[in-house]
Design a protein around this nucleic acid. Sequence first.
DNA 1: TTGTATGCGTTATCAT
DNA 2: ATGATAACGCATACAA
Lengths: 318, 318
Amino acid sequence: MTNIRDVARLAGVSVSTVSRVLNQHPYVQEEKRQAVLAAIEESGYVKNLNAVSLSKGKTEMVGIVLPFTDHSYFAALLKGIAEEARINSKKLVMFQTDYETDQEIAALEMLKHKQIDACIFCSRSSDWALIEPYQLYGQLVMCEEIHQEVSYTFIDQYGVFMKALHYLERKGYNRIGYCIGRRSGTNSQERERAYRDFLSSRQIPFNKSWIFDDCYHVQDGERVLEEISRMTDKPDALLVTNDQTAAGILLTAEKTGLNIPQDLGIMGFENHPIAEMLSITTIDLPLEEMGRNLFKQAIKHGIEKHEVTVSLIERRTL
Amino acid sequence: MTNIRDVARLAGVSVSTVSRVLNQHPYVQEEKRQAVLAAIEESGYVKNLNAVSLSKGKTEMVGIVLPFTDHSYFAALLKGIAEEARINSKKLVMFQTDYETDQEIAALEMLKHKQIDACIFCSRSSDWALIEPYQLYGQLVMCEEIHQEVSYTFIDQYGVFMKALHYLERKGYNRIGYCIGRRSGTNSQERERAYRDFLSSRQIPFNKSWIFDDCYHVQDGERVLEEISRMTDKPDALLVTNDQTAAGILLTAEKTGLNIPQDLGIMGFENHPIAEMLSITTIDLPLEEMGRNLFKQAIKHGIEKHEVTVSLIERRTL
DNA sequence: TTGTATGCGTTATCAT
DNA sequence: ATGATAACGCATACAA
């Protein structure tokens, strides 16, 4: 394991000169430069970036916290993040948490221990109070509208949900339920708030059984429809916060002879290719763009709150 | 930024004693231990793991190279890898390559520069000759059957494809085509070899237009079926190397009035939930298990070649 | 049981 | 332009 000192000795110069050559600093004679280059070649010298990190106090790595990657929502976010990371020559350290807080803390501890320079939370389970103190150790970026002193990129979930509800109402639906991943989490809470506000403004009673959680994948749509089929009091439309589940609902409906959109209106979220393919009305979420911005915020100093806008894509499930 | 020396001074002991306490080594008086702990508490000391890495010559991080995560195949592999990484308290550095070699090299360079201890290639574009020299710098693990001195976890693609072809033949299909991601890559080449061998043993001429590449997602299935619809000489069955595309084909077929499996037999690969949902006959690939094993190989010394077995799941598309 | 001294490999400051 | 030397922060062999 030859180091910079060996190279210096071999080239007959000092370590500083070698370092200068290595980092293309000016002020180094061409002769010596060549001597150093030759010594590097001869010795097979390889820079230890670990030592560089220690010396500079930076690792050029950014942590990414997300519950799972086998889900199009997070995969798309990650794609945007990875693109931007690549542009900026940064590396990504992944934390697949399954929504467990200890994995989130593991990421934060890495930040604290100077293994990463910044950390992006695509989602979180931990209380903000648990996360907040770690800001001391590096840039933190969230993917939710959180009214705290921290950078984030967000979608106005309340506004979007409310708009979607009004749209359904105009389409003649008045027994609206919704599907969601988990009920905790800022985004979900915002949606529930919109839902409840909408209902109470119409003096429609809140019906808990019309909220379906744990909806992530196609097969969850199947489950939802089964549950509905057993209800005497059924919803006539569903806001489905991801297109995978929406697709599952649509496909199962077709199998069981349920008419979409007559018997059940469906609005998906994301505008995933499967939604286009199945012609599912959906809210287009610019996830890759969000991912890119999350990363930009991670390597930027200071706090920035960035909202992205979404648009409704009208197709045939409503 | 208080360091171990500050703590030592504060506690009135030497740095080695602090280090011992920090790493729960034996042989340290309880009094001093407490003093050190108190000093750590008081000073808000945080260990710099970067320095630890430099000192130990290890980072406890493993690189993961894959073309993209927004694809169930790689997402599932990644899930297995991440699980095992977590069990072993290792961190993962992600390289999303989009099949570009420079990103693969970037990962290898990190290995060379001691930023990661090992590197897993879930797929590759680079020639083996380009990758091989990097074995000098750390453990390399591949996800393909490559007859070289390196660890890998693999599926016998030739055997599986051959078995699938025979199965189709028994089911009465004799105009078989197939869909694949990219045509280069060891796995694809093995499949093509099986395909060609099968054809020539039956004296069926090879028809290039029955091989559809760039098939990854649901919408690619739509494209494939469009292409087929324009053919005068159509295949009567397709091996589809991922369930997403198989689903796309099935769904499009239903829309266009094509009968599955009468007009077109479909065999998917992976046994993704969507295949179960749509009742697609498929080859079950134990991807998460493969991912777990890939990771185990990454932290294990020495070369190990591990084959995983797959099984055929009979459903209604054949 | 504890401390001293050295190594890990680089960057950066400050002379010259 | 170049070199000596001090950080960077920790681990550990060796001595005591």
